[in-house]
Design a protein around this nucleic acid. Structure first.
Lengths: 219, 219
DNA sequence: CGAATTCATTAGTCAAAGCTAATAATAATT
DNA sequence: AATTATTATTAGCTTTGACTAATGAATTCG
């Protein structure tokens, strides 16, 4: 069985890989708020347990086994967040920290019951998929907004990262899941994008932001 | 802030004291499933933190501060058990182990919300009091069944310990909280007691059992 | 009462998971 | 290409919380 510490490493590896693709020791140590040597030594232990592929000075990658275990933790995290908000009426600002703790609880029945009470959800309120009981993550076939073309109309399906800064950014612009967005133009200069949606007209979004927004094409 | 380990020591000290009165190192180490030297050294640390009174070779006692902290943990444990059973419809056989984990979660709002959803209960389903927000335990003025006299009629109000063996014992005899019990006789020989209740007639209970049953006298 | 038994403590070891300081490998810049 | 900067690793130390083996108190029993 994995320790709480190991679970946190796996989760961080999984999340960083999802956002940034590659994971290096620096990123991981920032994410976990630990010093680099600490991370190096732990990663080696995870490698011995066949949870990560590790070669000195190379990027870190989860093994299939590692992905599965990480998926299971993220499943528990996302189910917990939904449960806390939907069933316990706690505020979104509170639930993340609580879910970070509850996700480590060892009890299959507990999470199965949550799943049942929530009606077996497939995605969480950020549009992120909830991994299945085997830790498998099925991302629907979404596109990054940054990969779309001018003239297309798309529906906002998910946000890739859920830092509070980014969520505030979206909030300030009245952007929410399900929103229909019409792409007016893409600036060749910096890949920023000009869109219409709701009552707003000719809003500009940076490429950085667009890379974190997943959309479904209409049609 | 106390570590998870420390919290478990405090809770065990509290529970043993409640059941057995005095706590010695042997009992505590059995309860925590640790070796005695481990317990001795931890208890000394707790003493430095002013959580227990410690003198070599003397029984262990929680300080007021220690009682308060233990009470807060037990509050979280009991609220959690009730929440899991009443609101999540989990079985009693499952909830203890889950509550043992959830009781360590750091989040005032989480437990306040549980309390609210449960309607601010004062006792748990075993009749044990739920400590208040300051960790204070208010046992209602119950009597041990073993301290009652022949001829009295009493109502079963609480069970002091909740080991599964004891609960099964009670179950097998169709005894439950709220039950009216008429005391027919007390054997001077071994202090065992003869009672009538429900459809049962002249059942005998040992003194050991009677010491763990709290009753309210009918007035 | 003295011997045996039980209970508790001391001393020393170990693993997990963190740290700092020093060093080595890789990448970037001039 | 050489230097500098960044990134990663090694070596060695620390704390927490466990353990075993040996020893010292307290209690019980013949």
């Amino acid at each position: 069985m994995n320790s709480l510490t190991e679970e946190n490493y796996l989760k961080a590896l999984f999340n960083i890989a999802n956002i940034a693709g590659e994971v290096n020791v620096t990123e991981l140590s920032k994410n976990l708020d630990l010093k680099m040597p600490t991370v190096t030594s732990m990663v080696k232990k995870l490698a011995e347990k066949k949870l990560v592929h590790y070669e000195s000075y190379k990027p870190l990658r989860l093994t299939e086994k590692g992905k599965r275990e990480a998926g299971l933790i993220i499943r528990k995290h996302r189910l917990t967040e939904m449960f806390l908000v939907d069933k316990m009426k706690l505020g979104w600002e509170d639930v993340h920290d609580i879910a970070e703790q509850i996700e480590h609880i060892k009890s299959p029945v507990f999470f199965e019951k949550m799943d049942e009470l929530l009606g077996y959800p497939k995605v969480d309120p950020h549009g992120s998929p909830i991994p299945d009981k085997n830790g498998k993550v099925v991302w629907k076939d979404y596109n990054k907004l940054s990969d779309c073309n001018a003239g297309e109309t798309v529906k906002l399906a998910a946000v890739i990262n859920t830092s509070s800064e980014f969520l505030k950014f979206l909030n300030a612009r009245e952007m929410h899941l399900g929103l229909r967005i019409k792409i007016k133009a893409i600036e060749p200069f910096d890949k920023s994008i000009v869109i219409n949606y709701g009552k707003r007209h000719a809003e500009t979004l940076s490429n950085v932001a667009c890379e974190r927004l997943l959309v479904e094409k209409e049609g």
